[in-house]
Amino acid sequence: MSLDKIQSIPYGKEVIKIKNISLAFGGVKALTNVSFDVKKGEVFAIIGPNGAGKSSMLNVINGFYKPTSGQINFAGEDRKEMMPEFAAKSGIARTFQNIALFKGMSTLDNLMTGRLLKQKQNFLMQALYFGPVQKEEAYHRDKVERVIDFLDLQAIRRTPVGSLPYGLQKRVELGRALAMEPEILLLDEPMAGMNVEEKQDMSRFVLTANDEFKTTIVLIEHDMSVVMDISNRIVVLDYGKKIGEGKPSEILKNKAVIDAYLGVAD
């Protein structure tokens, strides 16, 4: 199981190595020869202007898109592509830029879906719903309640998520990812459209998750002050190509990055 392999990797060592990944849809090149490493236990940010291929990069990492060429080294094994189910089983969870919650279900049920992979009883047992199933449900409910406590979601436990405000939906989505007890958490613009206070809350949740649960975090974010504050390392994409990589302080001085963001002075 690759979940065990990831867990056995020491903190600070590479857990994902992206090697020369290219991705094209027909003639449109979304990513060209991108390479970078994500180290275990760090907060790793992917930044870049709109359309730079950031979300496509996350989609490649959790197997939703198949790269046209290149390799992903995941937990020490080279792969041509990832599969969503495999990624989930290997401890990769993610949130989405446009919230992808299960709108017809309550907050609690949404979080419980994060536990699906860990529930082992078969459907006949579930249909009868006696002893072991009940115990299993209660056990996972307990885990989920901890996430609810951590993210302050108690009040909306039974509310259908479709009717929640945007900021809370983002938080529930983070909750669902955390309920999976992931080793690696991919966050696609977790703070988009939030006000300052909500951003502070969200940053706190992300840092706590990283700090307490030792979750590796790969994050896409547009707000530079947040990115510079919370991330350990950053990779910068522009038009599908990598134009910079390094610590926040290095990125701030990187000429190519500044040009990409501010435009080149003629």
Binding site: F25, G26, S55, N59, F64, F96, Q97, N98, A100
Partner: peptide
């Protein structure tokens, strides 16, 4: 139809 590209 065009090839379906699913986005998330």
């Amino acid at each position: 139809g065009d090839k379906i590209i699913e986005r998330v």
